[in-house]
């Protein structure tokens, strides 16, 4: 029941994240944007159990795909397959990271948010290069990938601790295991 409530809260956060990230100003001078959706996704993928996190990844992919939907000559330019595969892979990776670090830790969440943002923008760029042709990998393009990733790294703890305040019972951060004592 508690997990269901967390799942619903996170689902509601997805469109809110999309609306808010559109309202945030671009980071000058490269007009890089701050992305909140990957940060919310990382939290959900780590805090929820495996099966709900897969459903959450699917919902995130649907929202992200629809946000970027551009119909060209009756065809969706990016479609939903790429975001679906992308977020499902990351959901599994983040689940493993969550288990390996004994719970949802803020450091892992921040790092994961930055990695998801970096890879999301990188994948989008590569898909566009394949679809439209050309490979304009210039410094401004690289900065437009790196700056939002760094912004995600900085924003992630804010969201993490806010959500922990709202739903403290749902996220149990287990203490790291003690070093084994081999001395007699």
């Amino acid at each position: 029941m508690r997990q269901a409530i967390l799942f619903v809260i996170l689902l509601l956060l997805l469109p809110i994240a999309v609306a808010v990230q559109d309202l945030l100003p671009a980071i000058l001078p490269f007009q890089a944007r701050i992305l909140l959706l990957p940060v919310v996704f990382c939290f959900g993928a780590m805090a929820l159990p495996l099966v709900p996190s897969l459903f959450f990844a699917l919902a995130t992919a649907l929202v992200q795909g629809l946000v970027l939907l551009q119909i060209e000559s009756g065809q969706a330019e990016l479609g939903l397959t790429v975001p679906v595969v992308f977020f499902l892979v990351w959901a599994i990776v983040l689940q493993m990271a969550s288990e390996a670090t004994y719970g949802t830790r803020w450091e892992v969440h921040a790092l994961g948010s930055a990695m998801v943002t970096l890879s999301l923008l990188g994948v989008e760029f590569l898909v566009l290069c394949v679809k439209r042709g050309g490979f304009p990998l210039e410094m401004t393009v690289l900065l437009r990938i790196v700056i939002p990733s760094a912004a995600s790294l900085l924003i992630a703890p804010l969201l993490y601790f806010t959500l922990r305040k709202i739903v403290p019972v749902f996220i149990e951060e287990a203490p790291l295991p003690q070093k084994p004592n081999f001395s007699r």
Binding site: P15, L58, L62, G65, V67, L69, I71, G74, V84, L88
Partner: peptide, 21 residues
Amino acid sequence: VLTIAVCLLESGTLTWLQSGL
């Protein structure tokens, strides 16, 4: 089933969903 259904959505349905979002 949902994943396959989402991946197979056509542009008309996607436009309708985008309008909903």
